[in-house]
Design a protein around this nucleic acid. Structure first.
Lengths: 352, 352
DNA sequence: TTGAAAGCGCTAACAG
DNA sequence: CTGTTAGCGCTTTCAA
């Protein structure tokens, strides 16, 4: 137990070769012509000594750190954060990269975010993943332009940074289609009152899908509320007590699962059983809630893991030379999946 | 736009001084004696050129990377992951460190986890944070012993690795006390049927707290179920339909919030209003659920953020020379907070 | 087939 | 007060 840290030199000595040879062997340098015996000697010496290549030193020499920066704008605050991180981490690891993670408050000044990105740049990350929670246009720290970058979950304003976003439109279509397929023709829409573009779009797609099915999307009852259980509760009560009889919707599309949870309660209070009297689909929010509800909520899952993985893959492509500039204008989109659980069934036959 | 990357040398030239001086100024080396004018010249030259110290090079030279490895055992899978990561990240950042994150499947072989830790070691992280989700003894990859390490959320088996764990015992006591304070004397315990030590302990503490209050903890009704909403539902039904009248519990302690959610439904079906007829407290699970329930669930919050921050702080202390070996035998504990919401109130007066 | 040697960008003795 | 210089551990010409 003498020398604490052993380097390539120690391996070279132990194997009776030069450091060059060790480097060639251990890195499988293609043009290196080393005899098999020598290779073995080197490898076993390295193993024996427990040699750990110092990636800092390698990086200094090769100008490649093999590290990707993941800057999360408030992301680690939401329950979905972990999935994005996990997706990015596994995709990165699979290609030999590691993730340097940094949280940056989106609320704070651009300067503070600059500094966070700067820290990553000082560490010479090969590229940067910039993740945000709410799918919207985002203003990027200027410093980011000096390395390849990919946005996760939102698009950049005017810049030409490629982005990976969820295909929410497809998700809404799938959800509505599931209701249509079950035989529903009158469905209500419970809207998130937060006025972000994303939310407006959900409603548009909802209506368009109805129109395309030959129904009147514009006529569908819509109510908004705060994006919490009680907002959903109130909105549901309003929709469901508008009028009785033939016009009452037999299904509800809720903009997020918490609101759906509230809708459950609203329906229960009005004596409506789910899914017998009322089918419900949720959207993109909380798997945990969806599964815990009774009956379990059929909902659309946002592909957090997939977006993380996809973005990391693209970023590595860019780092390794692929030109992503074509992608900048046209974000990559990853599909949402409709998870069918127990809250959708066929509507009751027309009232007698 | 000639030279792309500018180094300390460029700054030295621009400022008309030597690299030593630049290094001294930029790093605020205490024993360096540099005139204020020179300092200014250096600083503005650096600023001007947009100089970014190359931390890889610094690290190579100083043998300190300023990076902490965070290995998460399956952690990024759970919704709590983000809070631990966030806590660790912010604490690290505050002291000038960054986090290299790596997910490692706890289910897979020790070898695979060794490899993950190895990747961190190759990058010469200054220390390692090892986080697990379920508070239990954990078997650590041997390689970890070569750098300072701190466990988050679980204790090590026989090794002498310091750990940071939640004070669940205190959390249970607080919850029971809240019920006691509200005037409850008969409370049921809804147990997680998973047979992990943690769960057994919760019940013990529950009983002990009751005993200490002069009640008979052993007599409290206990029912177990799978740790999901339906498990809680079934357990609640069993407890609440055991017998009527004076012996029926007026409050329920649930081992996690999903089970509490099920208990709500069970109570509702039996015609019991919460909190009027039945008070409920949850434990350590899902803030999102707790807030969305109606009435909102009073529950005990596990200090994920705090554990992450605390662990990072300790690790950095160790990295910077503090001896943590005393701590190894005695894990640091961070308190859980009882979040009072709407599910606890005084019991109804004794039945007429 | 293998080895010697020149740096990657920076810090820290040691000299002035 | 400031500058020279020797590495940190590794890769990669270039030469043998």
């Amino acid at each position: 137990m003498g020398s604490r840290i052993i380097g390539i030199k120690d391996v070279a000595v132990a194997a009776g070769v030069s450091v060059t040879t060790v480097s060639h062997v251990l890195n499988d340098v293609p043009y290196a012509r080393v005899s098999p015996e020598t290779r073995n000697k080197v490898r076993s010496a390295a193993e024996q000594l427990g040699y750990r290549p110092n990636r800092q030193a390698q990086a200094l020499r090769t100008q490649r750190t093999g590290m990707l920066g993941l800057v999360c704008e408030d992301i680690a605050t939401t329950p979905h954060a972990g999935r994005i991180i996990l997706g990015a981490e596994e995709a990165a690891k699979a290609r030999g990269y590691n993730l340097l993670i940094i949280n940056t408050p989106g609320s704070r000044s651009v300067d503070s975010r600059q500094a966070d990105v700067g820290a990553l740049l000082n560490r010479r990350v090969d590229g940067i993943l910039y993740a945000t929670m709410h799918h919207r246009k985002v203003e990027l720290p200027a410093a980011m332009r000096s390395v390849p970058a990919v946005l996760v979950g939102s698009e950049a304003g005017e810049s030409e940074v490629p982005a990976v976003i969820p295909d929410e439109e497809g998700g809404v279509r799938d959800a509505v289609q599931a209701l249509l397929d079950a035989g529903h023709t009158r469905m209500g829409f419970i809207h998130n009152a937060d006025d972000v573009p994303q939310n407006r779009q959900l409603l548009q797609v909802f209506r368009a899908t109805l129109d395309e099915a030959g129904l009147d999307g514009g006529a569908a009852p819509v109510e908004s509320g705060v994006p919490e259980a009680h907002g959903g509760y109130e909105a549901a009560r309003r929709i469901l007590s508008r009028k009785d009889g033939a016009d009452m919707p037999t299904a509800l599309f809720c903009c997020n699962d918490r609101m759906a949870m509230g809708a459950y309660r609203g329906a229960a209070e009005l004596g409506l059983a789910i899914p017998g009297d009322l089918s419900v689909v949720g959207f993109a929010d909380q798997e945990l809630i969806a599964e815990s509800l009774h009956p379990a909520l059929t909902t659309v899952e946002l592909p957090h893991y997939g977006m993380g993985a996809r973005a990391a893959g693209l970023l590595i492509d860019a780092v390794e030379g692929t030109d992503l500039s074509l992608m900048a204008a046209h974000p990559a989109t990853v599909g949402c999946t409709l998870v069918a659980r127990g809250s959708v069934t066929a509507p009751r036959g027309p009232a007698t």
